[in-house]
Amino acid sequence: MLTDKDFCRLGQAVIDTEASAVAALKSRINAAFATACRLILACSGRVVVLGMGKSGHIGGKIAATLASTGTPAFFVHPGEASHGDLGMMTADDVVVALSNSGETAEINQLLPVIKRRSLGLIALTGNPSSTLARAADAHLETGVDREACPLGLAPTASTTASLAMGDALAIALLDARGFTAEDFAHSHPGGRLGRRLLLRIDDLMHQGDAIPRVTADTPLSETLVEMSRKGLGMTAVTGPEGEVIGIFTDGDLRRALDKAVDVHTTTAEAVMTAAPRCIRRGLLAAEALATMERDRINALLVVDEHARLVGALNMHDLLRAGVV
């Protein structure tokens, strides 16, 4: 019966083996790797990734990483390719084929078609002398000294090495293309990252009649009614041109009540916080969040380039939008 210590020892041995396999790849980032990058950058079509079995799963992930980082790519199952899916490939594409042995029959039987169509071929194999490696325009060696599997049978370290090499390709291409965080967000609009990088303050802020606002001479009693009606826990105090001169918040209300002010005769200007923190329209909602967190506030007034009030938002708006 294995003990907890035995399980941990076995798990750590796997991590050590796979870490060594990945570390060994560094010396193989060479001229062939640069050739592979140039082939893909020169490609006017898409990258077609091939792989059988476990290599196929890794190939699918590599294709997905390429596609999400600016290099159009998709995965094709080699077994299906010879039964019609070859029609997905065009003369403008580049093929990336994964096979640890380099002798996977389903991939190698496609080599004559790939060559006949003059498609660029990048091979990731563990055998530089293999059929696939010799046929490739660029061979990226991903061989390992041993698998993490104690039987030496289950693809483990070898698939990890292939995945790491695929990531190296994708990120080198990302940098070469000048791919930005905003570009990444456009291909991930449904995720939290996309929302943080795409949502603008203008998309979330309360506008028009929904903005809580009073003038400097508004009685405190009416100011409280405006705060309650608009439900943002604050109200802007504006000047004659619509410029923001102050803000009145729940905190200001507590301080005013501590002073026992007369809510009917005291004006908003007398109890407001002057020169409040505002944010310009058009900026990312994530910047509004950063400002709130930095200044430890729960709401912001939004102004235009002339400091005129155009909107308002609070932390609940950011929470509902998934920015937080």
Rank of each mutant, 00 (worst) to 15 (best):
residue 74 F to R: 02
residue 76 V to F: 04
residue 78 P to Y: 00
residue 78 P to A: 04
residue 79 G to M: 03
residue 81 A to I: 13
residue 85 D to G: 03
residue 85 D to E: 15
residue 90 T to D: 10
residue 91 A to Q: 14
residue 92 D to C: 05
residue 92 D to K: 12
residue 96 V to W: 00
residue 97 A to R: 01
residue 98 L to N: 04
residue 99 S to Q: 02
residue 101 S to A: 03
residue 105 A to C: 07
residue 106 E to A: 10
residue 106 E to S: 13
residue 109 Q to K: 13
residue 110 L to Q: 04
residue 111 L to Y: 04
residue 111 L to H: 02
residue 112 P to D: 13
residue 112 P to F: 05
residue 112 P to T: 13
residue 113 V to H: 14
residue 113 V to M: 15
residue 113 V to G: 09
residue 114 I to Q: 07
residue 116 R to I: 00
residue 118 S to G: 14
residue 118 S to E: 14
residue 118 S to P: 04
residue 118 S to K: 15
residue 121 L to T: 00
residue 123 A to C: 06
residue 123 A to H: 05
residue 124 L to P: 07
residue 126 G to D: 01
residue 128 P to W: 02
residue 129 S to E: 15
residue 130 S to K: 01
residue 131 T to N: 12
residue 133 A to R: 01
residue 134 R to E: 06
residue 134 R to D: 01
residue 136 A to I: 01
residue 137 D to V: 08
residue 138 A to E: 00
residue 139 H to T: 01
residue 142 T to C: 15
residue 143 G to E: 07
residue 144 V to M: 07
residue 144 V to Q: 07
residue 144 V to H: 07
residue 145 D to M: 13
residue 146 R to S: 11
residue 146 R to V: 11
residue 146 R to E: 11
residue 148 A to E: 05
residue 149 C to I: 14
residue 149 C to T: 08
residue 150 P to Q: 12
residue 151 L to V: 10
residue 151 L to G: 15
residue 152 G to I: 11
residue 153 L to K: 05
residue 154 A to C: 04
residue 156 T to R: 04
residue 156 T to L: 01
residue 157 A to Q: 03
residue 158 S to H: 09
residue 159 T to N: 10
residue 160 T to D: 09
residue 161 A to M: 13
residue 162 S to K: 15
residue 165 M to H: 11
residue 165 M to Q: 12
residue 166 G to S: 01
residue 171 I to Y: 13
residue 173 L to K: 06
residue 173 L to D: 07
residue 174 L to W: 14
residue 174 L to E: 06
residue 175 D to C: 11
residue 175 D to M: 10
residue 178 G to V: 06
residue 179 F to I: 14
residue 180 T to L: 09
residue 181 A to D: 15
residue 183 D to L: 03
residue 184 F to Q: 01
residue 185 A to M: 08
residue 186 H to I: 08
residue 187 S to N: 08
residue 187 S to Y: 11
residue 187 S to T: 10
residue 189 P to L: 10
residue 190 G to F: 06
residue 192 R to Q: 15
residue 194 G to M: 12
residue 195 R to W: 08
residue 196 R to Q: 10
